[in-house]
């Protein structure tokens, strides 16, 4: 059974989402991946404001393909998250409560998630054509020069994700594999 979540995710809501829970996200999310995170964190360390409100924001690690005529956005599946590990603790401290990507996270990221109250979701990697149908609007917020890596504001409807790591540090990549192996 999927849990419907209306964005934004507050820190209180973040603490109620549990590892292994399938969720459908609706509302506003922002996209950012490697190059955008680098710039955002440079602003944070300089004490400057970010180009969008990061408080209670959910960030999707994605660099979509260009939209074909008539499309809102091209294929838009998650990229591998560990490349954002260097930046995520600062983003979480600044207010980010949700991250969407795929793959493992570092101990530092998990520690920040526990300290502040944030969740890490995975979307299905390599299912970009399917996931793009949940994106209803897309507009560039900043860093247009980065092309696919620009920060975009997306309105999503029932975006299917799974909570992999929750705010207590439980991790589906560990528990899911163990549970399966225990059935053998």
């Amino acid at each position: 059974m999927e849990r419907k979540i209306q964005l934004p995710i507050t820190r209180e809501i973040a603490r109620t989402i549990k590892s292994g829970e399938s969720c459908l996200l609706s509302g506003v999310i922002y996209t950012a991946r490697d190059a955008a995170h680098k710039r955002l964190c440079e602003l944070l360390s300089a004490g400057k404001p970010l180009p969008f409100d990061v408080k209670d924001a959910t960030i999707y690690y994605v660099g979509p393909t260009p939209a074909k005529p008539g499309q809102v956005i091209g294929s838009a599946g998650p990229t591998t998250s560990y490349r954002m590990d260097a930046y995520s603790p600062a983003m979480i401290a600044a207010g980010e409560t949700g991250m969407i990507g795929k793959g493992k996270r570092s101990a530092e990221v998990v520690a920040a998630m526990k300290q502040y109250g944030a969740v890490y979701f995975a979307a299905i990697g390599g299912a970009g054509a399917l996931l793009s149908s949940c994106i209803k609007t897309a507009e560039i917020v900043c860093y247009e020069d980065l092309g696919a890596e620009a920060v975009r504001r997306l309105e999503v409807e029932n975006l299917p994700v799974v909570c992999v790591i929750d705010s207590e540090g439980n991790n589906l990549y560990e528990t899911g594999r163990t549970a399966y192996l225990n059935t053998l």
Partner: peptide, 9 residues
């Protein structure tokens, strides 16, 4: 729909 299977083309 002739769209990319994955966004990482």
């Amino acid at each position: 729909n002739t769209v990319p299977i994955c966004q990482d083309t």
